[in-house]
Amino acid sequence: MKRILVVGGGLIGSRHVDAVLAHPACELVGLADPDMTLRTDVTRFAAMAEVDVHVDGVIIATPTQLHADHAIEAAQRGWHMLIEKPVTETLEQAGALVAAVKTANVRTLVGHHRRYHTHVEKLRQMITNGDLGTPITATMIWAMRKPDAYFQDNWRSTHGSPVMINLVHDVDLLRYLFGDIDEIHALGSRHIRNAGRPESGAIAIRFKTGLTAAISFADTAPSPWGFEAGTGENPNIATTGQDMMWITCASGSVSFPSMTVWSGSEDWSQTPKSRQLPHSKTDPLAAQMDHFIDVLNQKAAPKIPVDDAAQSLAATLRIQELLT
């Protein structure tokens, strides 16, 4: 049994608490968060400094601007860790964290949990194997209406950009599927809430392979299109089952998450034929926890190490810069 501490009791932190409690190979040490009214059903600490019992691994689920300080503190205590995305707020912090975990010789995994979906892995294998020929374009939509209360009287009122909270997942997913990014362009708007953060926009990305990707996003627009809505991975977001990504290749196309493949048309006069690939649903946080346990037991290397996550952070920060 691995003894796991969760730091941060917000929306994602509470889900991590539940994931640890549900895992047969884990024991929850407790939850560290200064708000002692959160999750009173588990052992509570106001801060990591108060934890005076043995910890095998820590899950850091605090606001992004606190990730570096908390992760470095965990490293100094010799705790292996799973850090929520984005890995840090700045690239300088990511560099400091890389140095800290290396000095402490602790194993570190970053929580880009979408990589653990079985149909994401199936899609990646299709692309890597060239099943549909050379990838040409990818188009994504992430659009939903976040409730106003989501931003009120908390850190999101100033750090609540959907780019850093949500699109960092989509950028990492594209990197996981298509490799290194070559160039980014973006246009943004904030004309609905008129807050000091981008709330909608369009992003164009060119990858070193030549593939181009387009992302349309908004946290002000009710819609059925988005990774969470399409896959049903988040219990706080309604499931629609609608596709939210479309990939075109030289010999066919595929839409996700339905895994509908279109092929059989050599020119525009022919009607493409469709088939739906079988795929199973996965609880990504549970699969991520399985992997974290393997990392703690030194049975696996981290699927998303800090330096890899830092590349997704760099691309997302560039998008944020272009939209500001």
Rank of each mutant, 00 (worst) to 15 (best):
G241V: 04
G196P: 08
M245N: 01
N166W: 04
M164S: 03
T220P: 10
P224S: 07
S189C: 11
R145K: 14
I247N: 01
A214K: 05
N154W: 04
V171H: 00
I237Q: 03
P224C: 08
T239Q: 13
P198H: 14
I181M: 10
S258M: 05
W246G: 01
M245Q: 07
I165K: 12
F217W: 12
M245R: 07
D219A: 03
D172F: 11
F207S: 05
P222H: 02
W225R: 13
L173W: 12
A138V: 07
W142G: 11
R197A: 14
S161K: 05
G201N: 08
D219G: 06
I215N: 03
L177V: 08
S251C: 12
W142F: 09
H169G: 00
M164F: 00
R145C: 11
V254I: 15
F256Y: 12
V168S: 04
T137F: 00
E199Q: 10
I181T: 09
A221N: 12
G252W: 00
F207P: 01
S253H: 07
V171G: 01
A149Q: 09
P224L: 09
G230L: 01
D172I: 02
T220V: 15
P147L: 14
N194L: 14
H185F: 04
L211N: 01
S251R: 13
W246C: 08
A202V: 15
V171R: 05
V168Y: 03
R156G: 02
K146D: 15
D180W: 00
F227I: 12
T231S: 12
S223G: 08
A149T: 15
A186F: 07
D182Y: 14
A229R: 13
N154D: 06
G241E: 04
I237M: 09
T220G: 02
L174S: 01
E199T: 11
F178M: 03
F217S: 05
V168M: 00
E233I: 01
K208L: 04
P162S: 13
R190E: 02
S200D: 13
T220Q: 09
D172P: 01
N236S: 09
S189R: 14
P257K: 00
G226W: 00
F178A: 04
S157E: 15
A202Q: 15
G188L: 06
A229K: 14
R197K: 14
S157W: 13
R193D: 06
D172Q: 12
F178H: 11
R156P: 05
W246E: 10
R197F: 12
G201S: 11
G160P: 06
D182N: 10
G230D: 02
T137E: 03
P224G: 10
N154G: 12
N234Y: 03
T231L: 11
T212C: 05
G196T: 07
D148F: 05
I247H: 00
Q152Y: 14
I205M: 03
F227W: 12
S189N: 14
F217H: 04
